Simulated assay, not measured.
Amino acid sequence: MQTTGQTAGANGAGRRPVLRFGLQIARFDYPGVPPHEIFDRVVDIARTAEDAGFDSIWAQDHFYQAPVPGLGWQADEPVLESYAMLAALAARTSKVRLGTTVTGVTFRNPALLAKAVTTLDVISKGRAVLGIGAAWHEEEHRGYGFDFPPTGERLSRLEEALQVCRAMFREERPSFSGEYYRISEAVNSPRPLTSSGPPILVGGGGEKRTLRMVARYADACNLFGDLETVRHKLGVLERHCAAEERDPDEITKTKMACLLISESDAEAQRRYEEMAASMGDYAAMLGGIAIAGSPQRVADQVGEYLEAGLDGLVCYLPDTHDLDTVRLAGETLVKNFGGLS
């Protein structure tokens, strides 16, 4: 296990990652909280996470509650639109980065998306991150009237969107003409607060195209899977970086984790088993994403991922509404591995 202050992962000594430990706010059906108080609880969660050492807050970019391993779901559960929520959080936090894990490329024209993320960057005084991926939740596309093209087209759209967003962040009046998107001397004023624009995080682990796009365009990636899977994906990414003549140490590498942390291993294991039983045939999904145990056991498991080459984690907590659990999670991670500051 690594100790406080060590650089995360096997790579990247001396660089500053885009993120270290992020908290994803993945649910809004908080027990006993009526609709008009949902955002108040979100603010409490975000501020508690910030105080506990989490360096970033992430929203799922969904319009229906997405099926999240370990959480169960109903499509008609309450969901807040991600960029409205993040902009409001920008005015109520002071240190955490803010982004989505991840925006579906099918939901927004990429120039408009770049404008929204730039606005978030201005409101937050430079704390925005663009998280983007190829989209996947067909049900909400159908419900909201968005086209849901085949996987290959969605990936092609993602590659064009990455080029458009980078240009909107970095150039004064960029133009681009692709198969799906185009801009013509587009104005993005005010500009992002750094010359290179908000960092870009690409979500997903597709080995032929997604990880190649990470190597070509991204500042960060967020993977899925158990330890063996993560090691394999990192190897694939390194090969894409070599082909692109890109230093892989420039890319912050994280994975999504369902974090079940309790004061005792027995309590965490009990909760894990309850969640797995509720998932039926999908219980294997939880096994690939869950980190469960007491603070020491969690630290041991996280340490294995960092030693494998990750820089950090994006975590969601089944009981995010419990501020004591949020605090315990953040303090455990930062105590054992250090934060960005």
Rank of each mutant, 00 (worst) to 15 (best):
G14T: 02
V18Q: 01
R20G: 08
R20N: 11
G22A: 13
Q24S: 15
A26C: 09
R27G: 04
R27V: 10
P31L: 02
G32Y: 09
G32R: 12
V33C: 04
D40G: 07
V43S: 05
A46M: 04
R47A: 11
A49G: 11
G53S: 10
H62Y: 04
Y64L: 15
A66Y: 12
V68Q: 03
G72S: 12
G72W: 10
D76M: 05
V79H: 02
Y83T: 03
A90T: 13
K95F: 06
V96Y: 06
L98H: 10
G99R: 00
T103W: 03
F107Y: 15
L112E: 03
A114W: 04
T118G: 07
T118E: 04
T119E: 13
L120C: 10
A128N: 09
A134R: 15
R142A: 14
G145S: 13
D147L: 07
E153V: 14
S156N: 11
R157H: 05
V164K: 12
R166D: 06
S184M: 03
P192E: 01
L193F: 08
L193Y: 05
P198Y: 02
G204W: 08
G206A: 13
G206L: 12
E207Q: 14
R209I: 13
R209P: 00
L211I: 08
Y217P: 00
A218F: 06
D219W: 03
A220K: 12
L223T: 10
F224Q: 13
G225N: 10
E245S: 14
E250L: 12
L259D: 01
E263R: 11
D265Q: 09
R270P: 00
R271V: 08
G280H: 13
I289A: 05
P295V: 09
A299Q: 11
E307G: 14
D311C: 11
T320N: 06
H321C: 04
L323T: 03
T325P: 00
G338Q: 04
L340Q: 05
L340F: 01
S341A: 15
S341R: 14
